[in-house]
Computed example of a mutant assay.
Amino acid sequence: MENLNELYSTARDEFEIAAEETEKKTVYAADDREAAADALNMLKESFAKALKETSPEVSREIQTRVGSRIRELENAVKAMEEMAMED
């Protein structure tokens, strides 16, 4: 669970940086969006692995604690990508 929290924190930080750079339309924006997507994918992979490798009780707890935050972050990354495509 601690590993997932760390990965979430990293993915969230990468998203915030990418969102700021995208909003400002800097030359770094595309690379930052890619870094945010990569961090999100690492989080999702670790999340899926954790769900498979733990007991049903622990899986439910992980799903409850982390699942909604991952979906929220995933939606935010998608919205940021769509915003970038509009420009």
Rank of each mutant, 00 (worst) to 15 (best):
D13V: 09
Q63E: 07
S59M: 06
K25R: 15
S59V: 01
A30C: 03
K44S: 10
E53P: 00
V66A: 02
D31F: 12
L43E: 07
L40F: 08
D87A: 05
F15P: 00
L4V: 04
R69D: 10
V27Q: 13
E2Q: 02
N5D: 08
K78R: 14
L43T: 05
Y28K: 12
A84I: 08
T10A: 10
S68H: 12
L7E: 08
L7V: 03
D38K: 14
E21P: 02
L7K: 12
T26F: 13
E53K: 07
E74R: 03
L73I: 04
E72A: 13
E57L: 12
K44T: 07
D32V: 01
E21T: 06
V77F: 05
K24M: 11
E86C: 03
E53C: 00
A19S: 15
A48Q: 11
E61N: 09
S59E: 11
E23N: 15
E21F: 12
E72H: 06
R69S: 11
D87E: 11
A79I: 05
L43N: 08
A18W: 08
E14C: 10
E53F: 02
R65M: 02
M80T: 04
G67S: 07
D38P: 00
R65D: 04
T26M: 11
R12V: 03
K52A: 05
E20F: 14
S55F: 04
A30Q: 14
T22Y: 03
E6P: 00
E82R: 13
A29T: 10
Y28D: 13
D31T: 10
K78N: 10
E23C: 07
Y28A: 13
R65G: 01
M80I: 06
D32A: 14
Y28N: 14
N5P: 00
E6C: 01
E20K: 10
E23W: 12
A50P: 00
E16T: 11
N3R: 12
T64E: 04
K25P: 00
D87G: 05
E86V: 09
A19F: 13
F15R: 01
Y28F: 15
E2A: 01
K52E: 06
T10W: 01
L40A: 08
N3E: 12
L73N: 02
R33A: 08
Q63M: 04
E45W: 03
V77G: 04
E20D: 13
K44Y: 05
L43I: 07
S68W: 07
A48D: 11
V66R: 00
M1C: 04
G67A: 04
E21N: 08
Q63K: 09
E82L: 14
A79K: 13
T26K: 12
T64V: 03
A29D: 11
G67Q: 05
E45N: 08
A18E: 06
